[in-house]
Design a binder for these strands. Structure first.
Lengths: 293, 293
DNA sequence: AATCTCACATAAGCTGTACTTATGCATGAT
DNA sequence: ATCATGCATAAGTACAGCTTATGTGAGATT
């Protein structure tokens, strides 16, 4: 069965609550005539009188009196649900991020964001799919790329640059790493990574002999980093991801030479939503974190 | 907080149930474009995406998924309530009737109506107020009057005529009632009733001596009738109300002379509702009852 | 008793929302 | 490679739903 026009039901609900068409009209910001019209419509639609028109007031008929509380309850439910949705929409920040950035940078720092924004819950989606907010349930994204996405605002986070890193003990085992060529004496973690070629070229070694060890391929900088810290070989990593480990001496960066592919990490979100409070808060926090360096 | 436009909510509810704008549009008998438009409106209104647009289908976002069941439930409530109202409206017949007719004619016969229409419940309102269906919660009315009410259909039930009646034992106590004048030898139940004047005039006694006995005024033919049956005096009553008592000999009607004030009992109901089944059923039953006489 | 006031009904006319039609776009299926 | 499907979007339209203006009836007020 089809519902009667909802505008009519809404008018009925308000009129029943107030016992007055005039007051209902005020509540709904319309005229008394409009309420009268809608209620007449509803009565015709369901085929029975809902109100008794008495001189200075209207009263519910028996049928109207039975209908009214149920309708009110249904409206309350909807009101509550939509209010909850609003809170939910405001109170949960969903971040879609590439896994590497999540593991190496975001997750370790999220605690500070949550301290700063205790009312905001964070939901993380680590995925490599290109970010498309019309088909991903997310508020902000972190992606690498050119930074040009139509309709999107993109803040540069840092360069996806790369340089060799290794465990200091591993370096000591060959008497220290003095020249780029020294690296070739050590196992290479993921020698298939194209970054190696780029970096050695930048370091003046155009065609390095990278002895491939099939076991050492991780496909993810996060895992590669773990292997390097554990001393399993030299890795080519993004320094910004390993600030802590470098500071604590778990890793060393033997050369200042840094490769780059003109590739950046970006914080992105739809331009239309740039003033949504939770998005603002996250952007400000993230940019603040970068300045602290 | 104000609810978003209900048309948008309805579109959302249907789309969420179907997981498809196209199917929702079919259900609501509108185009896919309209559903798309409404949902976009709703999303803007509550400030968050509700659907993820995936190729060949739409999926609810987390927030949409939380909202949807509540909205569906609210709609189900309303649907059920309105369906119940319809049943109620169809299943309860409210009759507003003048008390005399209720007591003397209608109530004793209602059992037969209820046997004939077991699905119909009857609610009786005995009141003397003029019948006005816009301010009385009733489906049909029984009133006396001229039979001309604008916008109303009125079926004549019978003449509100009147003639003296009395208990046969009372008649015997004065050796029988042979002439109208004989009545004056007996106590008159409610001598203030204007019908007496009219009847005696019709019977050829223009100025009868009605010895008023202040105790014997009832103001209601029903009570008056009880007194007459009990032998407390002669009453002036409407024969149609006392068919049973006359047949069984509890009352006698000594003269065929019947007074009338061109006043009838009418069954009335709004013209616009003449085809409502319960009203039809009652009208047909009532007219049938009259023919059986 | 006469007048006033209040609340709703009704008519006429307007306005803007919610629709349709037409088209475009992306993607999964064939 | 082509087709089919499902949603988005733009433009134009129709009519529901509104406002304005006025009428009505019965309490309230004097």
């Amino acid at each position: 069965m089809n519902l009667p026009p909802l505008a009519a039901i809404r008018a009925f609900e308000a009129a029943a609550r107030h016992g007055s068409f005039t007051k209902a009209a005020e509540e709904l910001s319309m005229t008394q005539a409009a309420v009268s019209y809608q209620i007449k419509l509803l009565e015709e639609r369901i085929g029975t009188a809902l109100f008794l028109r008495r001189p200075r007031q209207v009263t519910l008929t028996e049928i109207g009196a039975r209908l009214s509380p149920v309708i009110s309850e249904a409206f309350d439910m909807m009101r509550a649900a939509i209010a909850a949705t609003r809170e939910n929409a405001d109170g949960v920040l969903t971040i879609t991020t590439i896994p590497t950035f999540a593991a190496n940078w975001l997750v370790p720092r999220l605690g500070s964001f949550q301290l700063a924004q205790p009312a905001l819950a964070v939901r993380l989606q680590a995925t490599r799919e290109i970010v498309d907010f019309s088909r991903q349930d997310a508020d902000v994204g972190i992606r690498s790329g050119s930074g040009r996405w139509p309709g999107m605002i993109a803040h540069k986070i840092f360069d996806a640059d790369f340089t060799p890193m290794l465990n200091p003990a591993l370096a000591a085992s060959i008497g220290g790493v003095k020249t780029p060529a020294d690296l070739l004496k050590l196992p290479i973690v993921d020698p298939s990574d194209p970054w190696w070629q780029l970096w050695f070229a930048a370091a003046g070694i155009p065609e390095p002999d990278l002895r491939g060890d099939p076991r050492s391929r991780y496909g993810d900088q996060h895992l590669e980093g773990k292997a390097v810290i554990a001393g399993q070989g030299v890795g080519i990593l993004t320094p910004a991801f390993y600030e802590t480990e470098l500071a604590q001496g778990q890793l060393i960066q033997p050369f200042d030479i840094v490769g780059t592919a003109d590739h950046f990490y970006w914080l992105v979100y739809p331009e239309a939503r740039r003033n949504v409070p939770k998005i603002r808060a996250f952007r400000d926090w993230l940019l603040g974190q970068l300045e602290e360096r």
